[in-house]
């Protein structure tokens, strides 16, 4: 889901930055309110953990692979704004240091894996809070929603940006991106995100309550 440079048209690049900038600004403010000596170890470690689980590539049938993200866990343990900023920081380091993702696509990737994943996961969790399966379902829903935005941004490329029908940027349309990305996340990486979110939540939550 790390969209590389060159895959999105300049229009989409500008549009995603225009949407992301105010959200980053507000999210950073929220992070500053949450971050202190007590929350630092947890927020720092959860963000580092997100980086690590994104390195754990899971091969799936069809010759591709993918990974969990970890945005939902931060969203339900703290709040979705903190998760959005944390994932954005992870994505920036992945792009600049490891060449994973892109600079022009940094906003798009942050919106998909960070913003949408964190907020969808957070609200699903709130709705089903009473039930034990809440963090699992939240993790699954969050990453599936993330993959949907990525599929949408990629899939509209050949529709709007082509030269006499030859795609200029990402060449496959929605009919291919939706099943390939959203389908794979529903069946495989969503399960990984669900298990990670559910287990880690159970492991961390009780202890976190003691410091609040």
């Amino acid at each position: 889901m790390h969209i590389p440079d060159g895959y999105l048209s300049p229009t989409v690049v500008v549009a995603t930055y225009a949407v992301a900038l105010p959200l980053w600004f507000f999210g950073f403010k929220k992070l500053k309110e949450t971050l202190n000596e007590e929350t630092l170890p947890l927020i720092g470690a959860l963000s580092a953990m997100s980086f690590i689980i994104m390195m754990l590539n899971i091969p799936i049938p069809g010759g591709t692979s993918g990974h969990a993200v970890g945005a939902v866990l931060i969203a339900i343990l703290f709040n979705p704004w903190v998760a959005f900023i944390a994932i954005s920081v992870v994505l920036l380091i992945q792009a600049v240091i490891f060449g994973d993702g892109g600079i022009s696509t940094f906003a798009a990737n942050s919106l998909a894996m960070g913003f949408v994943g964190a907020f969808v996961g957070y609200y699903v969790f709130r709705i089903f809070k009473k039930y034990k399966f809440a963090p699992y379902l939240a993790g699954w829903s969050g990453i599936v929603a993330s993959s949907f935005l990525a599929a949408l941004l990629l899939g509209i490329e050949p529709i709007f940006w082509n030269k006499n029908g030859t795609p200029l940027y990402f060449p496959f349309g929605l009919k291919e991106t939706i099943p390939a990305l959203v389908g794979a996340h529903m069946l495989f990486f969503g399960i990984a995100e669900a298990v990670f979110t559910g287990l880690a939540y159970g492991f961390i939550h009780k202890k976190k309550m003691e410091i609040e």
Partner: peptide, 16 residues
């Protein structure tokens, strides 16, 4: 595709 061919990629210190 034009955009993908043109993309320079990031000169990352620990690429891949």
């Amino acid at each position: 595709p034009y955009g993908i061919a043109k993309a320079k990629g990031i000169n990352a210190p620990m690429k891949d």
